[in-house]
Nucleic acid binder design. Structure first.
Lengths: 243, 243
DNA sequence: CGGCTTTTTGACTGGTGTCAACCGCCGTGG
DNA sequence: CCACGGCGGTTGACACCAGTCAAAAAGCCG
């Protein structure tokens, strides 16, 4: 549906730091090894030694963990512009999986290259990527609030508010509409509910006119109303321009 | 009960990186402005501009958010050796609160000093503090799994396994026992349950002989059994020596 | 037109929340 | 020294949100 105007990975970081023209060029140069990943396909698995950092350029990817009883918990949605595992470069083994949720285009960057530019370098990119990591942490915390203390309907509404903000930040929202190629089961694994209950909640939200969801496109007619319902405060996304 | 042998902030980082004697001295020098914080007292509040980074040296602190309906969600337990907000130094406003849960001793470090040593510096401390941040993120993800997909009893058991590991890493566990000055209400706000239900679950765990909890001391007689029950895998703590 | 996955529906179960009372501990103050 | 008050822990009765199971309907794709 919507098309990104610029490179989403750069668009996103612009929200967190003032990038110099030079660091923009450095970034562009990093994002050359781009691969296509099919839905359901893993990018990296728990236990593996991370050799690359991944950046989503198109589509949705997810972090997730499997449970011994066959269950699954989704830990993050990785939208265009999101860096998947800056972090893990430092660690010896992945403690979770990353997979494509919808068809994705993902950039692969070698960890040594990243480490040189950031951890050991301390340039402007270091600040920008720190910022992105901190935002990820903020999102994780907000999800925890949702799962722990919000009823199902508000939790899901809150997630939709968050996605609207995040996708708008990389130019993927148009008139409150954005691509949403996500099954109700994946939604359920995200919010910690059963697929059946997610179905019922979605019907309620549609019935109340808070959202529309058809043909894999999510529409938020009245964002203010959805935010009020979900008790949404975007402060945790730290998207105000200038870091 | 138990006494830390060394400085917990240094003990902890030793798990994540090889510290040079010099960086150890640098750390010691940073941790001089130590203040006492009473239970319930806030160290920093949502919305505030962070001017200091905080390190817990004694006692438990928490990250938390309040909800409009009066509820509270605890987002992290900060034990001795934990850095509270490395991160936020980069951000303009706190998106959550930090408070003492039990009587605490907390070191205050000015953000400019920290930024010089890490973000802009790129020394060995940068790696160590990155590592600590990544571990925090790993914990957050595991908590999400617990809230989303684990039944109440296993979730609480899992938390006890985690605490045992984390506190052992800074020398605060002795014979499977450690100080646990935490009300059931705080536990409830941590795991997203009601205090009443936490009470019932604790009785069940005690009845099954998995834990003992009396006089504000938690005892795990048989750690292997508790881990098996909770389906606990410590990989997300990344505590293996050498980063 | 078949098989597949995803969504939808209904009936029923069950885990957890809520409310309210009671108890035991402990610090405070008369 | 004892009475009081408050907080945290414990219990029981009951309500309700969300899970489970199962089957039908609707899309999707070859």
């Amino acid at each position: 549906m919507t098309e990104t105007r610029g490179n989403p990975a750069i668009l996103k970081l612009e929200h967190g730091a003032r990038l110099t023209p030079e660091s923009r060029r450095t970034l562009e140069a990093l994002l050359t090894d781009v691969r296509t990943v099919a839905p359901g396909e893993d990018v990296i698995r728990e236990g593996e030694r991370p050799e690359n950092v991944h950046v989503v350029l198109e589509g949705f990817a997810i972090r997730y963990k499997n449970l011994p009883d066959g269950g699954r918990q989704i830990l993050a949605w990785l939208a265009p512009g999101d860096w998947c595992d800056m972090h893990i470069a430092l660690l010896r083994a992945m403690d979770h999986n990353i997979a494509a949720l919808s068809p994705c285009r993902v950039a692969f960057i070698s960890r040594t290259e990243i480490e040189r530019l950031t951890i050991d370098g301390g340039g402007p990119l270091n600040r920008a990527l720190w910022w992105a990591t901190l935002v990820d942490e903020g999102i994780l915390r907000e999800w925890l609030v949702g799962m722990g203390r919000r009823p199902a309907d508000k939790q899901i509404a809150h997630l939709f508010c968050e996605l609207t903000c995040r996708l708008r930040a990389v130019g993927l929202v148009e008139d409150g509409r954005f691509d949403f190629p996500v099954s109700q089961e994946a939604l359920a694994d995200t919010v910690g509910l059963s697929a059946v209950h997610v179905n019922r909640v979605l019907q309620q939200l549609r019935g109340d006119g808070l959202i529309r969801l058809e043909d894999k496109v999510l529409t938020v007619h009245d964002e203010a109303r959805l935010r009020a319902f979900a008790d949404f405060n975007p402060n945790y996304l730290h998207l105000d321009k200038r870091g």
